[in-house]
């Protein structure tokens, strides 16, 4: 076996094996070529899918296309509202689970994980049923924007906040409770301790959890598809209906914008979470 190794290559140097490098390259091509071509063709002059020259026209047209613009702004508004509430709810739940012993705690934790494991489509149809039976589906139709999106926002909070709770709880594991005791010894109230000691400590996980909720919300198609009424179309739902009928480069342009927004959020989340790891080690 060792005879086949090149000089300087240890038996455990799997990373430098040629076949692994080739496999890696092929998989990266498989993962990125479709996305890269989608982005490239957002700058295409022609709409047939054959390259005819570079242009920004598709971006300008998409911006002026009311249907696409509304869908994109709906998606962002929903993601924004859902992020704020999911972060608050997730953090509160994480704090409760971290701090307190209470009866039925383990079943409660399993119960919180349900939105994570139940198939999205089942949660989607359940919410569709709930909204139409309670009349919420039609009631919100004429409310002012973005309140007419409230059903979707509610649904997004329901499946996002358990994820935030997981992120926040993993940060709380490293919290030294003596800090909290010291704060209370020095006369701070429960609330003062919370705002001056616990929240600053949690801040990185709150931002990371919030950005996770943001991307989860932007990413969701299935639950939105079922819980949205006919007038509240989000960007993924819009692409879905357009893919079924016509494919236009304006969709490529709008998709590119959404990809950039999502990736920015992801990178910020990673930058913020990175120092946490070094602190621990």
């Amino acid at each position: 076996m060792a005879a086949r190794l090149k000089p300087g290559q240890g038996p455990l140097d799997y990373g430098s094996r040629l076949w692994l490098k080739i496999l890696f390259a092929v998989v990266l091509l498989f993962l990125y070529a479709p996305i890269a071509s989608l982005i490239a063709f957002s700058f295409n002059v022609d709409k047939t899918g054959v390259w005819h020259g570079f242009t920004f026209q598709n971006y300008i047209k998409a911006w002026h296309n009311d249907a696409i613009f509304n869908a994109l702004s709906n998606s962002l508004a929903i993601a924004f509202c859902s992020t704020i509430f999911s972060t608050i709810l997730g953090a509160m739940t994480a704090l409760a689970l971290w701090r307190f012993k209470f009866p039925f705690k383990t079943p409660f934790e399993g119960f919180l994980a349900l939105p994570i494991v139940v198939p999205e489509i089942c949660m989607g149809v359940a919410l569709a049923l709930f909204y139409s039976k309670t009349g919420m589906m039609t009631a919100v139709r004429d409310w002012i924007w973005p309140l007419n999106l409230i059903n979707i926002i509610i649904a997004h909070i329901a499946f996002s906040f358990p994820f935030v709770a997981v992120v926040v709880r993993s940060r709380l594991v490293g919290f030294n409770r003596q800090l909290e005791e010291a704060s209370k010894d020095l006369g701070a109230s429960e609330w003062q301790t919370f705002t001056n000691v616990i929240v600053p400590f949690l801040m990185p996980s709150l931002i990371a959890g919030g950005l996770l909720a943001f991307t989860l919300s932007l990413d969701d198609f299935v639950i939105t598809f079922f819980s949205s009424g006919p007038n509240s179309v989000t960007f993924p739902v819009k692409i879905y209906s357009m893919v079924k009928t016509t494919i236009t480069p304006q969709i490529n342009a709008a998709s590119t914008v959404l990809i950039v927004i999502t990736l920015l959020a992801t990178f910020i989340a990673m930058k913020i979470q990175a120092p946490v790891k070094t602190e621990k080690s």
Binding site: I35, V243, S255
Partner: peptide, 23 residues
């Protein structure tokens, strides 16, 4: 990284690659 990109956008990208006159 692709995990963070919208599922529908990725599926749409794949359609553009695979369809008859696709890439």
């Amino acid at each position: 990284l692709p995990f963070w990109i919208n599922l529908l956008i990725r599926t749409y990208a794949l359609i553009q690659v695979l369809r008859t006159n696709g890439f």
